[in-house]
Amino acid sequence: MAPSHEGSGSVFEAVALQKEYDDGQVKALRGVDFRIQPGEFVAIVGQSGSGKSTLLQMLGALDHPSGGSLLYRGSSLAERADLAAYRAHDVGFIFQAFHLLPTFTAIENVQIPMLESRRTTAERKQRATELLGLVGLEKRMDHFPAKLSGGERQRVAIARSLANDASVLLADEPTGNLDSENATLVMDLIVRLQQEQHFTLVLVTHDPGIARRAGRVISMRDGHIISDALNIAP
């Protein structure tokens, strides 16, 4: 079943989106078109070099497209002057390698994005405590990343991505560095949070099992979208 490309109110709308590196010698995205609706859980799948991570970078405004357009809630991301504010408040990022800051405890790591918010010190701490409770780490809040397991680290990273109440979560191979047991736990957590909080989730993976849990799967190869289909029973 093909996803609907109709209707307004999309979270993202990409039109002929392109990304080139090395003066055009490497074409990571060769003109992709899609729309993502609020609350969707979209998995982007494909082999290494297919362009899926580049696409995630474009959605997260971590890099600029070389051509085409990418709209966020109807406005062009390329024309936004406050991309840092977009990254701080509109989207949350979960990385494959967790990327927690090693010299900060779990609760401090969760507070770091909130320094860009207007929350007071006490409010930041309270919010971080709530989020760590949400991901089941209330008893590990004062541990440094080195003292946490891989699964726990990723749960801290998930809490961090939700710190500023983002309406979109972008996850780059979130279970890529985890064993199967922890991978399942982390995916269960992400899916549960998405269902409870109704944020839009765009997840890059090459694991078909994880992709099957998404509501929609975009498959990529050589910078093109080769299929874009809804999962009937995610």
């Binding site: 971590l62 840092a84 504010a85 990254r87 701080a88 408040h89 990022f93 860009e116």
Partner: peptide
Amino acid sequence: TQEICVLLAIGWKRSR
């Protein structure tokens, strides 16, 4: 470098 890039990715302004 990577830590700074992560801070940028999670919304820190360049000025910060």
